Simulated assay, not measured.
Amino acid sequence: MTTPDSPTLLDVAPSHGGVRVDRAVTSGTFELDGGSWEVDNNVWVIGDERECIVIDAAHDADAILSVIAGRKVRAILLTHAHNDHVNVADELKAATGAPVHLHPEGRVVWALTQDGAPDAILTDGQEFHIGDVALRVLHTPGHAPGACSFHSSAMHVVFTGDTLFQGGPGATGRSFSSFEQIIESIRARLLTLPSGTVVLTGHGDATTIGAEAPHLDEWIARGH
Rank of each mutant, 00 (worst) to 15 (best):
G170R: 15
H101F: 15
A134R: 00
P104E: 10
F150T: 10
G167D: 00
G142E: 10
P145G: 12
G97H: 03
A94Q: 03
G142I: 08
A120I: 03
S153T: 01
G146R: 08
A117C: 05
M155G: 14
P99F: 00
T113Y: 06
V158G: 08
Q126R: 01
G146L: 11
A95R: 00
H129L: 11
A94L: 05
P141W: 05
F159L: 13
V157M: 09
H103F: 07
H139K: 09
V158M: 12
P99R: 04
F128T: 07
E105I: 05
D162C: 06
T163N: 07
L164P: 03
D132T: 00
T140L: 10
H151R: 10
W110V: 06
L102M: 14
A98I: 01
T113D: 11
Q126I: 02
G173E: 02
V158P: 14
V157K: 07
P145T: 02
F159I: 11
D115S: 15
D115L: 13
H129E: 10
F128K: 03
L112D: 14
Q166E: 06
V137S: 13
A98Q: 06
F159M: 07
L92Y: 04
M155R: 06
T140Q: 10
Q166P: 02
V157A: 14
D90L: 12
A111Q: 05
A98W: 10
H103A: 07
Q114N: 15
T96M: 03
H156Y: 07
L164M: 00
L112E: 15
D90I: 08
L102N: 05
H139N: 14
C148E: 02
V158D: 11
H143C: 15
P169A: 15
E91A: 15
V100G: 08
L112S: 12
G168Q: 10
P99Y: 00
T172R: 11
P145Y: 02
V137K: 04
L112V: 12
P118C: 05
T113E: 12
H139E: 14
V108S: 11
T140V: 14
H156T: 13
A95E: 03
G167M: 05
L164E: 03
D115Y: 05
A147Y: 05
D132W: 01
L135P: 12
R107I: 13
A95F: 00
L112Y: 13
D119T: 02
P118I: 07
S149I: 04
R107G: 06
T172G: 09
T163L: 07
G131K: 01
A120D: 04
V158S: 09
A171M: 12
G161Q: 08
S153G: 00
V100R: 09
A134V: 02
G131L: 09
V109Q: 11
T172K: 08
A94R: 03
S153D: 13
D162M: 01
G142C: 09
G170A: 13
H101Q: 03
V100C: 13
V133C: 07
T123D: 11
A171S: 12
L164I: 00
T123R: 15
G161D: 08
L112A: 14
P118T: 00
I130C: 10
A95Y: 04
